[in-house]
Every structure is written in C-alpha cells, then in structure tokens.
Write a protein that binds this DNA or RNA. Structure first.
Lengths: 196, 196
DNA sequence: CGGGAAATGTCAACGACCGTTGATAAAAAG
DNA sequence: CTTTTTATCAACGGTCGTTGACATTTCCCG
C-alpha cells in the first residue's frame, strides 16, 4: 500500500503533517487530558503514524507544551473597556452554548483535564501565568493588580471546574439570572475594587 | 520470608489491612491523582501486597469511589452562623498553611489531581454534589439556593485550582490583604445576596 | 533526462508499566 | 487436625512512548 496522500494525490509536507497532528492533539487533549491520550490515538486522528509525532515534535510532552503555550491567549470578552467587563465575562462563561460544542477546542477542558498530571501541571502553570494572568494584570490599575487578576482567574476557572470538570447541573442552565449577576459583580470587583 | 506482621508479632486483621490501604491510597491519590497512582504504589505504602487491594476493595476504581464519598464532608469553616461565613471560608482558604502540609490529606488536591481522569471525574462529580453542594444549599435561604451554593463552590474550587493545581505565586502569600477581603465578600454574596 | 540525495512515511519491536487473577503458602481459629 | 482467614508470588493480556531500520516519494543538480 502506498503512503498517505491528500485529495490531489500529492504527498504531505512536514509542515502540513505537523499541523494535522497539532489540530488532532489539541482536540484529543481537550477531550481526555494529557495522561489519557496516547500518541497512537493522536496519530490516527491526524491520519499519520505514531512515529511521526516523536519525529516532528520530539516527544508527547513537547507537543503538549507547544499547544499549552498557545492556548491561553487572552480571549474576546477581555477586550474592550474595563467597565462592564465583569458582566461580559460572566455572560460568556455561562453563555448559551451548554454544553460546549464537542467538535471545537475548549480552553477550560484542555486545562482541567490535564491539570492532574504530574508532567502536564507545571507546563500549564507556566502557560497560564505568562499568557493570561500577567497580560490581564497589565491592563488593570491600582494596587495588587496581579493578585486581583489571579483571583479573577480563580473565579473563572472555578466556574469552569464545575461546568466542564464536574458537569454540574446547578450552574449549567443559567441565563440572565441571579448567578450570572453575582458572578459578574464578583469579577468586576477584581478589576475595579470599590476601595482604590 | 514470613508474612507481614505488626510490632507485636501478630498478624493483621482484614479490617486493619483495609484501613492501611485506605490511608495510603488517600495520600497517594491526593498527591498524584487517580491515573498516576498504581495499586503497586499504594500497596507498598500500606506495607502489603498489590493483590490485597483487588481482594479487599474489588478494584482500584471501587477504592477510589469509597474515598471520594467520604472526602467532601462539609468542613469546619462552614459551621456556625451564616453571617461572616464568607470571610471565615476565605481566611481558611488563603490561610497561613502555604503550601499545605504534604503529609496530610488535602481535599482540593485530591479533587483537582483526579478530575481529568475519565473514570474518576464522574465519581468526583457525584461526591461533590451529594456531600457538599446539596448539604450547603440546605443551610441557605432565598431563591436559587442550590445555584448560589454551586457558585460559591466554584469560587472555592477556583482558588484551589490556582493554589494547589497551578501553584500560583500570585495568590499564595495573602494575609488579611485586598484579595482576601474581595474573596470573602464574593462568597458572602452567594450565601446572602443583597437582593432577596 | 537521469541518478543520487533528501524528505517523508511505514512497520515492528523494545522495555516499562498497568490492574487483575489464580495458585499456593503461611498463620490463626475451631 | 481441619477449616478459615490472611498473605505472597508469578503471570496474564494489555497499553504506553519511543526508536531504529526500512520503504517510498520528491527534489535538485549535474
């Protein structure tokens, strides 16, 4: 049998195969976590061979590190003015997409499903700080900005734990209700504390 | 070589061995998570044989379920009057024991290090709801009590994620500072919302 | 245009761990 | 002494990440 070809009968570039593996690995890690995902599984989804993962990325750990370092870029609800940002994030967090589309990458699932792994945890820790908490705190004014940014991150991650990690039915269906208001206020208080 | 004996030269009861395994497993799961802990490792720490784990508990999964079902009993800071409970929980969460003593069982570590495992996650989900969120919500009054209890739980778990999961230096050292006040207020607002 | 070099893909195997089970030994109980 | 309880050991079938040898395709340069 011949080697893998794309639709036009051509063979893949290394860069193309790399990209397919990256996409497949992102999804797999997001769905099942670092420890539960094997390179064979990733390679199958990427229509390639397990050996290519080691070839192109060095190791499964390197592949994971690469994905993690790009996963936590500060997202859409964090753009725009600081005023009202709390409610914006809350609305996005408790938004209508419940449960999230299983066919697209989920930051929170990616984080929570791998945070227990002794090898993945330090990688995720570094990524969260460098890509999220620090950039966010730089947009904030006032004292202890980084600590407040971390607290905000904690709230967000906590909601994520309950929703994707534990699949809690208690928070799941929440439109513009009390919980959403409470969360929005709590987030806003991290951004702009009442006492300056 | 003879079989395992205790200090008095006597042999262990099944109940005693069971207890040693339980203690060892609690610690191991809390330190490394469900997937990373092997029955051989547990048995070694419990001074017994890997086969005894399957013998006495049926399976590693059963053992984990047993531990999980007893791990999330509502804890000390949740006793007493609802007034000021938010600050009490915050103080306990951000308390002086940082990092927590690695020689004693840690609820949060136990939860977070195993939440990524496909087999452990549903077990933990059930345990958290039955042992924590529901009992807590029964102590609360007002509308949407269970949803607010879940939100409070999310905050607490989020802080735990940052501290034990990610080892965040941003929240770690926090005495009676701004972050502690903010967290306490946010928790209290879940317990006793301003708008009844 | 041809041939060798480079790039890409495939396959099989390694050693290491995993949870579990059955056979068997040792100790205690009756 | 026989039965029951507790412990030990070896082995099973399986999955894991990684590697080296080899096959195939593409490219480049003479």
């Amino acid at each position: 049998m011949s080697t893998t070809v794309d639709k036009k009968g051509r063979r893949s570039t290394a860069a193309e195969t790399r990209e397919r593996i990256l996409v497949a690995a992102r999804m797999a890690f997001s769905k099942a976590g670092y420890d539960s995902v094997g390179v064979r599984e990733i390679a199958l989804a990427a229509r390639t061979d397990p050996a290519m993962v080691s070839r192109l990325f060095g190791s499964k750990e390197n592949l994971f590190t690469l994905i993690a370092s790009e996963a936590f870029r500060v997202a859409a609800p964090f753009d725009g003015p600081v005023r009202g940002m709390g409610q914006r994030i809350a609305a996005d967090l408790l938004g209508p997409v419940v449960p999230p589309d299983p066919d697209e990458f989920d930051n929170f699932a990616f984080l929570l499903r791998s945070i227990g792994s002794p090898v993945a945890a330090p990688i995720l820790s570094a990524a969260i700080h460098q890509s999220f908490i620090q950039p966010l705190s730089r947009r904030m004014s006032g004292r202890e900005a980084e600590q407040r940014a971390a607290l905000l991150t904690a709230y967000v991650l906590g909601v994520a734990v309950l929703r994707v990690g534990l699949g809690s039915p208690a928070i799941e269906r929440s439109g513009p209700e009390m919980v959403s208001v409470l969360l929005g206020e709590a987030l806003q208080r991290c951004l702009t504390p009442a006492i300056p």
